[in-house]
Design a binder for these strands. Structure first.
Lengths: 194, 194
DNA sequence: CCTACCGATCGGTAGG
DNA sequence: CCTACCGATCGGTAGG
């Protein structure tokens, strides 16, 4: 990967996240880099290839951050907290990539789309296995872990729509509070107990 | 609103949600209706106007469904459950509109964008006031209601990415389970109690 | 609702 | 001969 190619990918990431993939022209991208549109093709094959590279890198970031939690030796609640921190950390540190990832993955060519879906399933699987472990070890009450995993992921994913790096809470604080809500609930009284 | 205009809006909704706003051409839209591209402009002013109409209608649907819960006389946990049912119901019954709404509202002209943001704040406010009421009346434990409202809304919003009308759970069932998780938590033991 | 067309711009490629 | 880039233009399509 040449330096120029890296620059192009970074610029494309910024434009795709701000304007959307389809409304970003190669003209826009060239202007952002001080190049003529045609000159971009020395370094890339097509506009679609750029999207593909960005989305793939996004999927890798997510998995790379989460997978270590799978092997963590700790009670499930603690592992869930750690998974939430990592997941939300990736979104918060890569808001532009998250936006492109969540909005544009559907438009990838079929094989790449399938790859993304597989990664997504793998990712959800890590969350679900943590929660299933918790039920087995007795730290979590029996419940529909498909849906609690979805709740945890929804909270983290949706962050891309509202998180402000200069906001009142850090990404870790947000992750911890979400974890608290999901683990302990917000009700007063005995309902939270088994 | 003429019948033709309604047909155009419905077709646009379908195309915008499937291909995205910017990748949908007026040619696509004409073909979907068996019209020439130029003929559409007898009924609409611009492509952007179509987006505006779709997003505005989406915002109205959401508010219309939720506002009655504001005046409901019931304990906060019950009102939260009802709010979740309604919110998730709107998303589940309008998946295409939700997709367009969440992806494309950022691209509206500034005044319309501001209107959407105001509606969104109003909407979040309803959730937050329910939760604040709960703390005041003692049914919910004191906590950061800005963030618990965000958790509830995140779960409902993200539904547009994965909900399958033919899936194993109905929208109401999903809403109830999410409500359970948020209210009671998933931990076993005493953590859920005050 | 159509045909015909506008100024401009699309993604991608040519030769040098 | 290379990498990096140019001005110009390809065939088609954009919104109007």
């Amino acid at each position: 990967m040449t330096e120029r190619r890296t620059e192009i990918l970074e610029a494309a990431l910024g434009l795709f996240s701000k304007k959307g993939y389809h409304d970003t022209s190669m003209q826009d991208l060239g202007e952002a880099l001080g190049l003529q549109r045609g000159s971009l093709y020395t370094h890339i094959r097509s506009k679609e290839e750029l999207l593909l590279a960005i989305v793939k890198r996004g999927a890798e970031e997510f998995l790379k951050a989460l997978l270590p939690v799978e092997d963590m030796e700790a009670p499930a609640p603690e592992r869930l907290r750690e998974a939430m921190r990592r997941h939300i950390g990736v979104v918060a540190r890569n808001l532009e990539a998250a936006t492109v990832f969540f909005h544009e993955w559907r438009f990838l060519p079929e094989t790449a789309r399938q790859d993304v879906l597989k990664d997504r399933d793998r990712y959800e699987g890590v969350f679900r296995s943590i929660l299933d472990d918790g039920i087995r070890e007795g730290t979590l009450r029996p419940h529909d872990t498909r849906l609690s995993a979805t709740l945890a992921l929804s909270a983290g994913n949706w962050l891309y729509q509202w998180y402000d790096p200069k906001g009142r809470l850090t990404a870790d604080e947000i992750a911890d509070r979400f974890s608290n809500f999901i683990l302990e609930g917000i009700s007063r009284g005995r309902e939270g107990a088994a």
